[in-house]
Every structure is written in structure tokens, then in C-alpha cells.
């Protein structure tokens, strides 16, 4: 089945803070290796973990804005907003340095209400040839494996 995007959904197993699943989507197979993918997802997760961390710094900032009757929110960007900017910058940087060369584009999770990180598969001609080649290689490998196992069994 041809899909033009791969999605990585939210992982709620450790609470409802913003984390994305680390399972490698099938649609990305052959486009990018799993370690690069994991690196990207882990980095995004780490930024969100920093944004939502409940530590002394977060409490202090929260207390200060409460003491100013939340007027400080009108003047300064919140820690979370800065982290979202980091996520956007990181995704841009990753797209231009790694993903675009392989016909992929990461879509910022903020565009989908933090539900998913999606990977847009750009259907260029080269990409198409590459994927056909990979399918061919895969089938051929299966065939070879079958043949070998068959010959071995006999």
C-alpha cells in the first residue's frame, strides 16, 4: 500500500506528558536507518521533557508569574514557548541536513496539535526508482533465502 506519510503517535505509557513513540514506522523502512530516526525522536522527546519538567525552576517561574498576577505572561515568552521554538529549529535543521536528501520531510507536531510527528514522503522520480529498486531487492533476497533454505533442507 502506498502512503505518502508515516506517522509517529504519542506514547502515553509514562504519563500524559508529550512523548512520541519510538517504534520505527514501516513506511520509513528503506528510506532512513532506524538509528537516525531514533535520534530524531529522542531529541524531540527530550525537548518536550525539558519543557514539561516539574522542577524547582518551573515552580519558581510559575510562582513569579502568579505573584505578578500573571502580567509577566504578557511581557515574556514562557519556558514552554522557548522549547517549542527549539523543536521547530531542530526539525528545520534535521530536514535540511538529513531528511530532505532522502525524500522525507518531518512535519512539526505543533501543526497537528501535538498528536503526531509525521514524516512526509516526497514522491520524486528518483525516490520512486529507489523504492522500486528496494522492493525488487527485497523480493529477490526473499527468493534467494527461500532457495537456500530449500536447498539446505533437502
Amino acid at each position: 500500500m502506498l502512503t505518502n506519510r508515516a506517522v509517529v503517535e504519542r506514547d502515553y505509557s509514562e504519563g500524559i506528558t508529550c512523548r512520541f513513540e519510538k517504534s520505527f514506522p514501516v513506511a520509513l523502512r528503506g528510506k532512513i536507518d532506524e538509528t537516525t530516526f531514533l535520534e530524531t525522536i529522542n531529541h524531540i522527546n527530550a525537548i518536550f521533557a525539558k519543557a514539561e519538567a516539574l522542577n524547582f525552576r518551573a515552580y519558581l517561574l510559575g510562582c513569579l508569574s502568579c505573584l505578578t498576577a500573571y502580567s509577566s505572561l504578557l511581557c515574556f515568552r514562557t519556558h514552554y514557548e522557548k522549547c517549542l521554538q527549539d523543536v521547530a529549529n531542530y526539525i528545520d535543521e534535521q530536514n535540511s541536513s538529513i531528511y530532505e536528501a532522502r525524500g522525507l520531510k518531518i512535519i512539526n507536531p505543533m501543526e497537528k496539535g501535538l498528536r503526531v510527528v509525521s514524516f512526509f514522503l516526497m514522491f520524486t522520480f528518483a525516490n520512486h526508482v529507489l523504492s522500486s529498486f528496494l522492493i525488487f531487492k527485497f523480493t529477490f533476497a526473499l527468493y534467494l533465502k527461500d532457495v537456500t533454505s530449500f536447498t539446505l533442507a533437502n
Binding site: A51, E52, A53, L54, A58, Y59, L60, L61, G62, C63, S65, C66, L73, T78, H79, Y80, E81, L84, M110, G113, L114
Partner: peptide, 17 residues
């Protein structure tokens, strides 16, 4: 106490819309 702090002084989540 942690629940109270998380509600009263936790991070400010962004608007998703």
C-alpha cells in the same frame, strides 16, 4: 504537595489551536 505545585506553578502549556 507535588500535585498542588504542578497545578499552581507548573509549566504553561501552549495553545494547540
Amino acid at each position: 504537595l507535588e500535585n498542588f505545585l504542578a497545578v499552581s506553578c507548573g509549566p504553561f502549556p501552549p495553545s494547540l489551536i
